[in-house]
Design a protein around this nucleic acid. Structure first.
Length: 573
RNA sequence: GGGCCUGUGGUGUAAUGGAUGCUUCUGCCAUAAAGCACAACCGGCUUCGGACCGGUUAAUCGGGGUUCGAAUCCUCGCAGGCCCA
């Protein structure tokens, strides 16, 4: 539809000359949606709203102005009629031209259909997932991981180059606690048998004792210091914890079909950060506090002062994050750096970007925090130390099991049951997270996570499998096409909706909003199902070839959309 | 105490600030306006796959304001979450 929109913009450019810029016109020209009850055939396919022009003419009566302008436009043979309705000028395209145009576009572009090159030549670095080593991935981690992954896919589809970084939390007090507990109570036999669980148990044990005995916190801090000084035993344990964690993380990332261009630890950037901070201190951009720590005053940014180094000179999160950001700029010269991190860190990132700006890094304005709402349990927030967790792996496994049970029940005959169960089960969980605007909080519930009805991945996957089944049963290439064969309303609407994928991709890319794609895929599939119920493809005589082309175009569009969410589509389920 | 985010039917969610029909002022036209899904209720089809389709009921937290037009922007509250102190 973008191409048809272009035609309308050209017509308006001819009419208005220099009155409006291209951008202004573009924002006043809308593609009519066809979903649900929004569809109104009287509104045509593309509409121009005349409010801006009315304001310019200082007219209150936009309706009659619209009529006047509509009469004076110079048209094109692809447009069958132009009609002013209220303050809108509605462009009705020739139905056949529209159908043929869209179906051709889908077939020519194939798996690239929906993409554009607006981001060509630009590089975006993303920091996402970023779990702490020594702790398991829980459902709180899923949003960053999946959002980051999907945003990368969407940016790539918009022509951007990307570099995705999993920035592990491999330092900090929690590591000190684990190392201390490991040295004190670690039982090598138990650890060998089940390292991940044992590391977690040690951590929880420490936290419980710490509540009664504050001296333990100091001991954990000692461990952090020891580690930073390069104590061999500490380093060995640290490496072990990291290895175990990475192995566990990879298992889950693999299930999620998420991968990173780079996995690195915060600790690598301590030195870089310290160096930068010391320079800033010399230049007077940072200051020593009463107790000898280093802080940056951010009152000029309307933000609270931020600590960047401890009084003992050791690094903290901000030290490393400053170092890491600068390192990334030097290494990649990115156009944008995106941190996909929960909203609880919002102030922290504002401070981080302000510090970079204050230190003289002009590119600080190209850093952006995608601050998504948290995933909470009904009983409150998740906490590793209290053991109040729902493990991500458990969620995925349960969902896969649920999918497998349904497959056994409804379609026991299909091949690759396990693989399909994975696609469906994992898809359901991912979709649950991605279909909601990221700024909203999500309350986790098993019912929600395992939902397979309505607005869900399995619903979309099922529609796709049905479409595939039609093609397989007929087993012939589409031939004998004529746009006139697709003569019902639902067919026309379905074609138009297919044609809207590029628009959805564009908007999703601008706002880093995968939920736009999720919604699109759902609406598109809903329309396909309506089509499926109303229009028979098999035995449809001379219309067969045309209908096959439509089914196949639907499959391309929905598959491309779902691939932007990282959700695989089984051909049978 | 200060700041940020969220608030849409019973539930979960969507909506770049956009749909206001015509008119000889008498009438004419219209599902004349917040979409989807779940749940509930009614129905269809199960002859290309029922993990389906059609229909009914039902919502913008409250008060002011800006605008030709507000779920959306501003403001004062309320509720929930988070951050800083």
């Amino acid at each position: 539809m973008e191409k048809f929109k272009e035609i309308v913009i050209k017509i308006l450019e001819d009419y208005f000359g220099n009155t409006f810029s291209r951008e202004e016109l573009e924002s006043s020209v809308k593609i009519q949606d066809v979903s649900g009850k929004k569809r109104n055939p009287n509104f045509g396919e593309i509409a121009y709203q005349i409010f801006d022009f009315a304001k310019l003419c200082e007219l209150n009566d936009a309706s009659s102005l619209a009529r006047e302008v509509a009469d004076e436009l110079t048209l094109d043979e692809r447009i069958s009629r132009v009609e002013a309705v209220g303050p809108y000028i509605n462009f009705h395209f020739d139905r056949n031209a529209l159908i043929e145009g869209i179906l051709n576009e889908v077939e020519e572009e194939g798996e690239k259909f929906g993409s554009n090159n607006s981001g060509e030549g630009k590089l975006v670095v993303l920091d996402y997932s970023a779990p702490n080593i020594g702790k398991p991935l829980h459902v709180g981690h899923i949003r960053s991981t999946i959002l980051g992954d999907s945003i990368i896919r969407i940016l790539n589809f918009n022509g951007y180059k990307t570099h995705g970084i999993n920035y592990l939390g491999d330092v900090g007090l929690h590591i000190g606690k684990i190392i201390y507990a490991f040295k004190q109570w670690g039982d090598s036999a138990k650890i060998e048998a089940n390292p991940e669980q044992e590391i977690l148990d040690l951590y929880i044990k420490f936290c419980k004792l710490e509540e009664k005995d504050e001296a333990l916190t100091k001991k954990a801090k000692k461990e952090v210091e020891l580690l930073e000084k390069g104590d061999l035993e500490s380093k060995r344990i640290h490496r072990f914890i990291e290895e175990m964690s990475l192995r566990a993380f990879d298992r889950v990332y693999d299930m999620l079909n998420v991968s990173f261009d780079e996995t690195t630890g915060q600790s690598r950037f301590s030195e870089k950060g310290k160096q930068v901070i010391h320079e800033a201190l010399k230049k007077g951009k940072a200051e020593l506090t009463e107790d000898g720590a280093v802080a940056v005053d951010l009152s000029e940014y309307g933000l609270p002062r931020k600590m960047v180094l401890r009084s003992d000179g050791t690094a903290i999160y901000s030290t490393q994050d400053i170092g890491a950001a600068i390192h990334r700029k030097e290494r990649f010269d990115f156009d944008k750096l995106l941190y996909v991190v929960a909203t609880e860190q919002e102030l922290y990132f504002k401070q981080l970007f302000a510090i970079l700006d204050k230190f003289g890094y002009k590119w600080a304005k190209n850093c952006f925090h995608v601050n998504f709402g948290m995933i909470n349990l009904p009983e409150g927030r998740m906490s590793t130390r209290e053991g109040a967790l729902v493990y991500l792996e458990e969620v995925l496994n349960k969902s896969i099991d649920a999918a497998r049970r349904i497959i056994e029940e409804k379609s026991p005959g299909i091949p690759n049951k396990d693989e399909v169960a994975r696609m469906v089960g994992v898809g359901a969980v991912k979709y649950m997270v991605l279909s909601v605007d990221y700024s909203k909080p999500i309350e986790f519930s098993w019912d929600r996570a395992l939902n397979i009805e309505g607005n869900s991945a399995p619903y979309i996957q099922y529609s796709f499998a049905r479409a595939n089944s039609i093609l397989e049963r007929i087993g012939r290439k589409p031939e004998g096409f004529s746009p006139e064969h697709l003569d019902t309303d639902i067919e026309f609407d379905l074609v138009r909706k297919i044609g809207m994928l590029p628009t959805a991709v564009k908007f999703a890319g601008l706002g880093y909003k995968p939920h736009i794609i999720a919604n699109y895929a759902n609406e598109l599939s809903g329309m396909f199902n309506t089509f499926y119920n109303k229009v028979r493809v098999k035995d449809s005589g001379e219309k067969l070839g045309s209908r096959l082309r439509l089914v196949s175009a639907y499959m391309t569009a929905v598959q491309n959309a779902m691939s932007l969410l990282g959700i695989k589509m089984p051909r049978k389920m």
